[in-house]
């Protein structure tokens, strides 16, 4: 299975131009026999939309989104856009398309609204974390901040995901600290997830700058043993292709049977107890 990581620089609020950029990458990926092409978070719209959210939001039935869906006849696609629901709530969404149809739509659950981030002002909050079946095996999608919550990758692994696709618009910050602060933290998190759950992590981050805020890129595939299999450069637009060998998941989980030994009942029991305690009930 060959995965393409489309490390692109979308234009802010320009759905038409970004659609053309997607199509160009799809052509290139097709010529490289890619099976699954992954674009970053909000790849169709750009990131810091603020009041442009109203202009770029659209339902899955919108012509631009349908155009991209049709591109998934031969090659599976993951792309990000602002999804407008029937009741006009705007979601930061990532869509998995295959065979010309929607295979799964993930609405970002954890919307960063602190420091330099403002997503909770504009977006509705998703309410599910689920894996889904693809022609390659069970897969999960998380968007950026989602993955900073340990519960999300845990739920994905418990729900059967062998490949976790993480799309982001992760900014450069903390460069003055040694080791380029933010990228190191991201890689540490993703590597831990791969090892702890014995799953592939496919990470696609954008590049480019919006009003001085740069996105670092560094898209990568981390194998189920926790090794960085390949890595796109910082700051540069790239199409990186990486071969995934899903048999590695089998060997990783045999060698380190964390998933087998995980006690889901215990976890649920303790979580219920903690929830009761927080509600002010019995706290033993």
């Amino acid at each position: 299975m060959k995965v393409g990581l489309a490390q692109i620089r979308p234009k802010l609020g320009r759905v038409d131009e970004n659609l053309r950029l997607h199509q160009e990458l799809i052509r290139r990926a097709t010529s490289e026999q890619v099976d699954l092409l992954v674009f970053p978070e909000l790849s169709v719209t750009g990131y810091q939309l603020q009041d442009l959210t109203l202009d770029v939001g659209r339902p899955v039935t919108d012509e631009h989104i349908q155009t991209l869906l049709r591109e998934s006849e031969e090659m599976d696609l993951v792309f990000g856009f602002v999804e407008e629901s029937e009741d006009h709530i705007f979601y930061n969404a990532a869509l998995y398309a295959s065979g010309g149809e929607v295979q799964y739509l993930h609405r970002k659950v954890y919307l960063p609204t602190y420091g330099m981030f403002d997503e909770g002002r504009y977006f509705g909050r998703g309410n599910s974390i689920r894996s889904f079946q693809t022609r390659f095996g069970r897969t999960g999608i998380l968007i950026c901040e989602d993955v900073w919550h340990p519960s999300t990758s845990y739920l994905m692994a418990q729900d059967g995901a062998k490949v976790l696709i993480v799309v982001s618009n992760a900014p450069v910050k903390g460069v003055p600290a040694a080791d380029h602060g933010n990228k190191k933290v991201w890689y540490d998190i993703l590597t831990n997830i791969a090892v702890l759950h014995g799953m592939y992590v496919v990470y696609v981050n954008r590049v480019g700058t919006e009003d001085g805020v740069s996105f670092f890129g560094g898209s990568t595939v981390i194998d189920p043993f926790g090794w960085v299999q390949d890595e796109a450069p910082l700051f540069e637009e790239t199409l990186l292709t990486v071969d995934l060998d899903l048999e590695k998941v089998r060997r990783a989980r045999y060698q380190n049977p964390v998933l087998r030994d995980e006690d889901l009942d215990l976890t649920v029991r303790e979580l219920n107890r903690i929830r009761e305690k927080r509600r002010g009930g019995d706290s033993r």
Binding site: V175, P176, A177, D179, S214, F235, E236
Partner: peptide, 16 residues
């Protein structure tokens, strides 16, 4: 703590 990664930051600043 004031030291910056020269190579990375020059690449970032010139690219941006």
């Amino acid at each position: 703590y004031l030291r910056v990664d020269e190579e990375v930051i020059v690449r970032l600043l010139t690219t941006a």
